[in-house]
Design a protein around this nucleic acid. Structure first.
Length: 569
RNA sequence: UGCCGGGUGGUGUAAUGGUAACACGCCUGGUUCUGGCCCAGGUAUUGAGGGUUCGAGCCCUUCCCCGGCAGCCA
């Protein structure tokens, strides 16, 4: 499935950005071209929040026949690492997007940025400031009061040129001087109060080595990066709205190609956080097992969990693009996922919490091969497989109740149910552990006439259970996950609380005694299945043929669970 | 007390002066060899006032509420 033939496709040009792009294409504003870019800072692998941006940046370029550049925004040598460059590329490729030849590093433009900076100094629009970081903050004023001009603001062009060159040469200490744009210390927009263009950071750059000891700030660098690459529509999130006047100012002073910046609201999802910064904290503090922890909303976490790139793309498209701050319901993400997995995931039978069942009237030693459909959503294409039936089976513990409440349709003493693709069985007796009272085994009888699952006399059963044959089933470990945070909005905390407070240490539950059908023997990492009646599961990279390991990606919708919880009330 | 942005069902989006729509969620019911899928139905919406207009979610106006901004981060 490609994004274009996805169900519920939105008409093109619906959101405000696509409207602008469509209009620009019509008027020929950019010569009939659209060039976007996705500019991540390589400080961690890609997140679901970034997937939204990726979907917009690459998606719009694709839809309008343009191109989207992938650009590593590596202007801060203290925070960025090469390993994340590869990680991000891999994440984007996995999502299904392609930047073609257009892979760039902001650091490749350092020379040009430096020349432009010198040009601004020559124009008298930038100056070297000797104020310390604390002093700069003081002079900047507050949100409601104007700032004061730096005492170094009126240095001569010659002196600025000299000082800036000596900054570059490494003559001054970290933080001792900056290059600042000369704009307006009284501006209501704090970003315009003589913003810093260059800071001294004597740290080697992951690509430039020790060539530089001055590094450009985001505001100075970003517009130039966009300009050099011939970007037409520079799309970013809402928090950069206040920076747009500055983006425009720099490009106007330089008189160079001037893309337009448009901002959209970033993705927020219930029961999780989205920023690389916070994920890093969780990884470093061991709150999660790593960047690919299946509970984490990193792309690699979601991937390990079993999310498909198609579902993620569909989700990103369906949440839309707007400027409203929003909080998307996690259930919607799960809906998109189930919709995709329902169509493609092969069905298999697996028992998570086994309860032994002995079919007393079934001949000892006999084995029958039952034919099972691999995917009822695609009966022909999906084909069938054989599952072994024998005298001793396992069913799910939850599928039996000794004293069932109303609306419990499954197995109970004296009750008859169907075993999927096999026979009707009736429960004769529940055997309990003498000491604990725990039910350890069920004694049942089967009706030989019901082979294949239908009774010749037309009698019906109210439930069909999944099962595995005790002698044939494979042992497996299954990891169940719930929301990483207990709070709907983890960031919505009081003054004495921390966003990490609602991290749920019980959000992972490992089941080791599971039994799965033999067809799963050669399942490979990232293979996805529907365990019938339970949910979608994905083979974890930890899995080996001897010890299969599955992650529960998402449960099936479960009406019985809803009935149960309403019965409790 | 500054600047910028935003308010449409519980949630996310649409409606470009002309019947407020779609999806998720939730609730009913049907169907079913998955209490899945599918099908049918239901639920609930323009922040407030004033104005312009035959007609306003949309235009004007006053107000209210929410978010962002005071890194040598991005």
């Amino acid at each position: 499935m490609t994004p274009n033939d996805a169900p519920n496709a939105l008409p093109a040009g619906t959101d405000f950005i696509r409207t602008v792009v469509a209009e620009d294409m019509k008027t020929g504003k950019w010569g009939g071209k659209v060039v976007t870019r996705f500019p991540p800072e390589p400080n961690g692998p890609a997140t679901l929040g970034q997937a939204k941006a990726i979907g917009i940046d690459f998606g719009i370029a694709e839809e309008f026949g343009g191109e989207c550049h992938l650009r590593m925004d590596d202007t801060n040598p203290e925070r960025e690492e090469e390993e994340y460059v590869e990680a991000i590329k891999e994440d984007i490729r996995w999502l299904g997007y392609d930047w073609g030849e257009h892979f760039y590093y902001a650091s490749d433009y350092f020379d040009q940025m430096h020349r432009y900076a010198v040009e601004l100094i020559r124009q008298g629009k930038a100056f070297v400031c000797d104020l310390s970081a604390d002093q700069v903050r003081e002079y900047r004023g507050t949100l409601t009061e104007p700032g004061r001009e730096s005492p170094y603001r009126n240095r001569s062009i010659e002196e600025n040129l000299d000082l800036f060159e000596r900054m570059r040469l490494g003559e001054f200490e970290n933080g001792s001087r900056t290059l600042r744009a000369k704009i307006d210390m009284a501006s209501g927009n704090v970003n315009m109060r003589d913003p810093i263009m260059y800071r001294i950071v004597k740290v080697a750059h992951h690509r430039q080595g020790d060539k530089w000891c001055i590094y450009p700030s985001y505001d100075w660098a970003h517009g130039i990066e966009d300009s050099i690459e011939g970007i037409t529509h520079s799309l970013c999130s809402l928090e950069f709205q206040d920076h747009r006047p500055l983006y425009d100012w720099f490009l106007d002073q330089l008189g160079v190609h001037h893309p337009r910046q448009y901002e959209f609201s970033r993705l927020n999802l219930t029961y999780t956080v989205m920023s690389t910064r916070r994920f890093r904290v969780m990884v470093e503090q061991g709150l999660v097992s790593g960047w690919d922890d299946p509970r984490l909303s990193t792309l690699r976490g979601l991937r390990r969990r079993g999310y498909t790139p198609e579902a993620l793309r569909d989700f990103c498209r369906r949440i839309g693009v707007a400027k409203t701050d929003s909080m998307v319901d996690y259930a919607f993400l799960e809906h998109c996922l189930r919709e995709d997995l329902n169509k493609r995931a092969p069905r298999v039978m697996a028992v998570l919490n086994p309860l032994r069942v002995v079919v007393e009237n079934y001949p000892e030693g006999q084995v029958e091969e039952m034919e099972a459909i691999n995917n009822p959503e695609d009966p022909e294409g999906g084909g069938t497989r054989k599952v072994s039936f024998s005298r001793v089976l396992y069913i799910e513990r939850d599928d039996f109740m000794e004293d069932p409440p109303k609306k419990f349709f499954r197995l109970a003493p004296g009750r008859e149910v169907r075993l999927r693709y096999a026979y009707f069985i009736q429960c004769e007796k529940a055997i309990k552990d003498e000491n604990t009272g725990e039910i350890v085994e069920l004694r049942c009888t089967y009706d030989p006439e019901t082979k294949g699952g239908n009774a010749p006399d037309g009698r019906k059963v109210k439930a069909t259970l999944h099962w595995v044959s005790a002698d044939h089933a494979l042992p497996a470990e299954v990891r169940l996950f719930s929301h990483l945070f207990t709070r709907e909005n983890p960031l919505d905390v009081g003054p004495d609380e921390d966003w990490k407070d609602s991290v749920d240490p019980n959000s992972i539950e490992t089941l080791t005694g599971c039994r799965v059908e033999p067809s799963l023997k050669n399942a490979q990492a990232e293979d996805r299945f529907q365990f019938e009646r339970l949910g979608y599961f994905c083979v974890d990279p930890d899995s080996t043929p001897e010890r299969l390991v599955f992650n529960r990606t998402v449960t099936l919708r479960d009406d019985w669970a809803k009935i149960q919880s309403s019965q409790k009330k």
